[in-house]
């Protein structure tokens, strides 16, 4: 019985964690997600990397993330964060142009913060990583159960949280090594059953690519073990305007409206 089980537990165990991936310097999207998460009772924050790149507000975004981390939030490094100081030839032209500009506007403190973020973080039964767990520095996209199972096999964490692909998904691995894949529905809490291990791939806050332009994040209720994928509407026109004003490729602004 839920009530009696709750009573037997220490109440302070119950925590609502808000998780954000791929903010990509989109201030309007991140503000909307933070506001909605706080309104829904989020008490802790996890930031899954790619704070900069593509968007027009890298300074504000990085400073906000630094502030949250100073207050106890957990953050890991994304490939765009790393590319600020270590340019990567593997990135597409738009991303490289955006990073070139980002490099110019960030101050030394912000660059230092991004460069020293950990590749992954273990938080009790949970693992946070930007791309996937088998080789975080390779920035592999979790596109199917193939990559998902490789990531799940590489850790003993009960739940792994990642982003990078900008499309929300939820994978599970059963005790008998069977994989399931699922495309989550917004605002429906999903019980993460303890009998199996889970890989939660978050949609992007700042540049959704699943056809829904609303900003994506997630809320984890650690007591009920329920994960809710959330979507927050935000002022896309303002975010697009910031990209254009910065002189970044127009396509980066246009794709925000389509969420593709």
């Amino acid at each position: 019985m839920r009530q009696s089980r709750d009573a037997a537990r220490i109440r302070t165990d119950t925590v609502l964690i808000a998780l954000f991936a791929d903010i990509h310097a989109n201030r309007q999207a991140f503000e909307a997600c933070l506001a909605q998460a706080r309104q829904r009772g989020a008490e802790r924050y996890v930031l899954l990397g790619d704070f900069v790149g593509y968007g027009g507000d890298p300074v504000w975004t990085t400073e906000t993330v630094m502030g949250l981390v100073a207050d106890g939030a957990k953050a890991v490094r994304g490939n765009h964060d790393q590319a600020v100081d270590a340019p990567s030839a593997a990135m597409n032209v738009e991303a490289q142009v955006a990073l070139e500009w980002t490099r110019g506007v960030l101050g030394a403190a912000e660059r230092q913060f991004l460069a020293t973020l950990p590749m992954s973080l273990r938080d009790g039964e949970r693992l946070y990583v930007h791309a996937e767990a088998s080789d975080p520095a390779k920035w592999i996209y979790v596109q199917s159960t193939v990559e998902a199972s490789r990531s799940l096999m590489a850790t003993d964490a009960q739940i792994t949280f990642c982003g990078h692909i900008h499309q929300p998904a939820l994978y599970s691995l059963s005790a008998t090594a069977k994989m399931t894949a699922f495309t989550p529905v917004a605002d429906v809490p999903i019980p993460l059953l303890p009998g199996r291990r889970w890989l939660a791939v978050l949609g992007a806050v700042g540049q959704p690519r699943d056809g829904n332009p609303a900003a994506a994040y997630a809320l984890l209720d650690t007591d009920k073990r329920e994960l809710t994928y959330c979507r927050a509407a935000y002022d896309i026109a303002a975010a697009a305007d910031r990209i254009r004003k910065a002189g970044l490729p127009v396509w980066l602004a246009e794709r925000l409206f389509r969420g593709k």
Partner: peptide, 11 residues
């Protein structure tokens, strides 16, 4: 359940 992972799909 169309809004929850289908654990039976691969079983």
């Amino acid at each position: 359940h169309e809004q929850l992972p289908d654990l039976m799909q691969e079983e």
